[in-house]
């Protein structure tokens, strides 16, 4: 019964449904990015570009030629990477301690991280805006990296401590018994075991930082620090009275490419990280 044709068909339909669900809007935004800008002004309904309204790569060229947009990509990459690296370093120390050592306040760290992960980020905008403009962090990279820590750090701590919990730490001692120095034991045994977890945590953290919008629009005002999501929402085309839908779509596709590449390359790791023991026991 378990493999009846009916059931197989049901699974196949379900699989098709998932693919449609996930990919249709992506296909739509790609299709939109190929509609010509003039046709958008006058209305160009339908999924695919209508007759004679196919714009080729024009929108991509125009989006890429936009200085503000390029700066925003650069800002996003820079700010997200710095936030990721700092979070992962700090979280690695904490997660190691949580997974490996007995100490007072272990629960406190985890509870704090959990509470902060649920924190409404908009609540931070007011006070941070007021402080940042007073101390000159407003509209700078650092002014975004610091608040990003409020959500990247708890995420990194959770993911990493879950991974580190799975590492057979005894192997380090075993290696030392076999004559390795403790540095060698750490480098040859622990690092290779821990690296995949650290890497996964870094990818997830990067996703979150890349996705941020609230801080991005509130704590910046020029391309000196404005990240991609904020830049997209302020996207200005040649015609100031019309939202340049197709140009924006092209910009959105460009901004999504890094994410798609990361997903394609590291699919397995991301799934593992996302659900790492999410609900075991």
């Amino acid at each position: 019964m378990g493999n009846s044709p009916l059931r197989k068909a049901g699974i196949a339909v379900g699989a098709l449904l998932i693919l449609t669900w996930c990919l249709l809007p992506v296909a739509w935004i790609i299709s939109l990015s190929f509609k010509s800008q003039e046709s958008i002004t006058n209305g160009n309904p339908g999924f695919l570009p209508g007759d004679g309204t196919f714009a080729g790569w024009d929108n991509y060229v125009a989006a890429w030629d936009n200085e503000q947009f390029r700066r925003a990509i650069f800002n996003s990459i820079g700010i997200s990477l710095i936030a990721t690296v700092l979070s992962v370093i700090i979280a690695t120390l904490a997660a190691y301690a949580i997974a490996r050592l007995e100490f007072k306040g272990k629960k406190l760290v985890l509870t704090t991280a959990l509470a902060i992960a649920m924190f409404p980020v908009v609540s931070l905008v007011g006070p941070l805006f007021d402080m940042w403009r007073a101390i000159g962090l407003y509209d700078t990279w650092a002014g975004l990296v610091i608040p990003y820590m409020s959500f990247t750090l708890p995420l990194a701590i959770w993911t990493l401590s879950a991974f580190f919990r799975e590492i057979p730490w005894e192997m380090e001692q075993a290696a030392q018994v076999d004559g390795a120095t403790s540095w060698q034991a750490f480098r040859k045994v622990i690092v290779p075991l821990a690296a995949p977890g650290v890497f996964t945590a870094a990818i997830l953290t990067f996703f979150f930082a890349w996705n941020d919008f609230v801080f991005g629009i509130s704590l910046t005002s020029t391309e000196a620090a404005r990240p991609i999501p904020a830049s997209l929402s302020f996207f200005v085309g040649a015609d100031p009275f019309n939202r340049p839908a197709s140009l924006l779509a092209a910009g959105a596709v460009i901004a999504t490419i890094p994410i798609i590449v990361i997903v394609l390359v590291f699919q397995r790791k991301i799934v593992a990280g996302l659900t790492s023991g999410a609900v075991k026991g």
């Binding site: 820079g78 710095i82 962090l137």
Partner: peptide, 23 residues
């Protein structure tokens, strides 16, 4: 650089990154 006020309270590397951009 945009002014001395911009440096307060941040790791030097971050400020360096931010201020070289706005220079």
């Amino acid at each position: 650089m945009r002014g001395p006020g911009r440096r307060i309270g941040v790791a030097a590397t971050l400020v360096l990154a931010a201020s070289t951009l706005s220079a």
